[in-house]
């Protein structure tokens, strides 16, 4: 977007990192900041709306709210965590809703910016998850017990353990929050870049380029943009789901009885 405004050069400048640095709306407040607040408000409002008249036989809106809650409750939390899953359903549901709405901002007209194509909040949420599952594991098994569960491969000679334990420690304790946040951020970033490429490319071909061929080809770029918008919708939902599912799975492995 800024590319087109600042550089009306005859050559096409592909969208890049600079496109993710949005100018502040006012003061320090940028578009992603507003989107974060906005997402929390609409999620809360939507959920409140679904339970305004709770009934055994649900209304359509109550059914939607319940289904959303039910997906996290019955097919993520219950499967991943086990017997104590009910305690974590509120956190996981709120997390899923927050991720999903902010991801879908990437394809919602007029907003069209996935909040988590900026890595700050993914880092923060992954850090939160990291604190949560390590806290739960240490609280349940003690520090040594928790380390044994997460870094002590069973039934191997000591010299093999010397090799494997560092790997498992890095994987389970250090790398989990990194992969969790980078997976989300990377998908959102790449997806947004891809859409920018098709839309801005199409725009350039149509309005800036001198070549007739490029002008004729422009609709195809836009069509591809639409196709990838649908694809991005899918990716955004899946990434939100994976983030929550892995969170639940980490909680589950921290609470496992004994290995």
């Amino acid at each position: 977007m800024t590319t087109m405004a600042t550089a009306p050069a005859p050559g096409f400048e592909p969208p890049g990192v600079a496109d993710f640095n949005l100018p502040p709306v006012f003061g320090e407040i940028t578009k992603p900041v507003l989107l974060l607040v906005f997402s929390a408000i609409i999620i809360f409002a939507a959920f409140r709306f679904t339970v305004r008249k709770p009934a055994l036989v649900p209304s359509k809106s109550q059914f939607l709210g319940e289904s959303f809650h039910g997906i996290v409750r019955n097919s993520i939390a219950r499967d991943m965590i086990g017997a104590e899953y009910l305690k974590f359903v509120p956190f996981l549901t709120a997390l899923f809703a927050f991720l999903l709405v902010n991801n879908l901002f990437g394809i919602i007209p007029l907003i069209q910016f996935p909040t988590f194509s900026h890595p700050g909040v993914p880092y923060a949420l992954a850090g939160l998850v990291w604190l949560l599952y390590n806290y739960l594991g240490i609280k349940r098994h003690g520090f040594a017990g928790y380390m044994r569960i997460s870094t002590w491969p069973p039934d191997v000679p000591w010299w093999v353990r010397i090799i494997l334990t560092p790997i498992e420690f890095i994987s389970n304790i250090l790398l989990r929050p990194v992969t969790l946040s980078l997976r989300l951020f990377g998908n959102m970033f790449a997806g947004h870049l891809l859409l920018l490429l098709f839309i801005l490319g199409g725009q350039y071909m149509l309005f800036t380029a001198d070549s007739i061929t490029l002008k004729v080809m422009a609709p195809f770029a836009f069509a591809m943009g639409i196709v990838f918008t649908f694809f991005e919708a899918f990716v955004q939902v899946v990434q939100a789901y994976i983030f929550v599912m892995l969170t639940a799975s980490y909680i589950g492995t921290s609470l496992v009885d004994h290995h």
Binding site: I81, G82, A83, S249, V256
Partner: peptide, 20 residues
């Protein structure tokens, strides 16, 4: 529920853990 009680977590998260 599966997952808890000593069993490893189910397949999708297993794959990610393996990658990790």
């Amino acid at each position: 529920p599966r997952g808890g009680g000593g069993q490893p977590p189910p397949p999708p998260s297993e794959a990610w853990t393996a990658l990790s």
